[in-house]
């Protein structure tokens, strides 16, 4: 009997689509200012103009090119997102691994502390922290890292609790491998699948939080454009130039969709149980 040729699974297709979308975003981050036809702050006499050959998506209320601002603003949004989630992931991995692997009192203390952060509605906490610390780039990244660390730590801790009891851990211990090496080399790699999925979802959530904070005026300070603040600024004149609203809205949706699709694809391919 010959093995029937397996068709590409649903998950693999999703993953391929998600990775392609991600590649576009990464290109935007790397080459944004080079691609943008105009400077983000460069004004032209034609304000709130419709699409034209010179300005593909028209101009905003003070005559800046919407497309250029989308590209440059996207770069800012995405850099904050990637940096903040990387920090949250690092913290989540360390805390989750320590909590789950060491267990006992360490586990109790870490999890209780994270529970406190968990008790806040994410967005409310983010607003409060940024409002208290002041809306600078550094504080924004710090805030987002703080609010998403508990989720990631929990996703790490859960499977660590069971994996640490597996035979290969005992075997490693019996040949004298240190606890730290066991935790990092023999436990961590086995719990990475759900972490990848959750990281992808967290990236989507972070896009939301960053743009929402900017929307409320708590984003990185002007003049740096940002999808959220662009959306907020455009609301005033949106009936006159709908593209100034639809542009950033579509960009935000595209970026979040990238990570949602990626998360779904990863979940299918890595066979991670549903949330």
């Amino acid at each position: 009997m010959t093995e029937p040729k397996r068709p590409r699974s649903h998950g693999q297709i999703l993953l391929a689509v998600g990775l392609t979308m991600l590649a576009l975003l990464v290109l935007l981050v790397l080459f944004g200012p080079l691609i943008a036809p105009y400077g983000a702050a460069k004004t032209s006499p034609a304000s709130l103009a419709g699409p034209s050959a010179a300005h593909w998506l028209g101009t905003d209320s003070i005559g800046r090119d919407v497309l250029s601002r989308l590209i440059v603003g996207g770069r800012g949004t995405l850099i904050i997102t990637f940096t903040a989630v990387a920090a949250a992931l690092a913290a989540g991995l360390i805390l989750g691994l320590a909590s789950g692997y060491i267990g006992g009192r360490t586990d109790l203390v870490i999890m209780r502390l994270l529970d406190v952060i968990f008790a806040f509605p994410v967005f409310l906490l983010a607003i409060a922290v940024v409002a208290a610390l002041g809306p600078t780039l550094r504080n924004l990244i710090l805030t987002i890292a703080i609010v998403y660390t508990p989720t990631l730590a929990r996703v790490v801790r859960g499977p660590v609790l069971s994996v640490k009891r597996w035979d290969h851990v005992e075997a490693a211990r019996s040949v004298g491998i240190g606890e730290f090496t066991i935790a990092v080399r023999h436990v961590l790699p086995l719990v990475i699948s759900p972490v990848l999925v959750q990281t992808s979802l967290t990236l989507a959530n972070t896009i939301f939080t960053v743009t929402a904070l900017s929307f409320l005026g708590l984003g990185p300070p002007p003049p740096d454009p940002n999808w959220g603040s662009m959306l907020a600024e455009a609301r005033q004149f949106m009936e006159l130039a709908p593209l100034t609203v639809i542009g950033p809205a579509a960009a935000i949706v595209f970026a979040s969709l990238t990570f949602v699709v990626l998360a779904n694809g990863l979940r299918d391919v890595l066979d991670v149980a549903g949330r």
Binding site: A204, F208, A212, M238, V253, N264
Partner: peptide, 18 residues
């Protein structure tokens, strides 16, 4: 559902207003 998950509520609200 996947699409909805990617559209933040303030974007939905803004689009409704528009």
């Amino acid at each position: 559902n996947s699409l909805l998950l990617a559209v933040p509520n303030f974007v939905i609200a803004t689009l409704i207003v528009l």
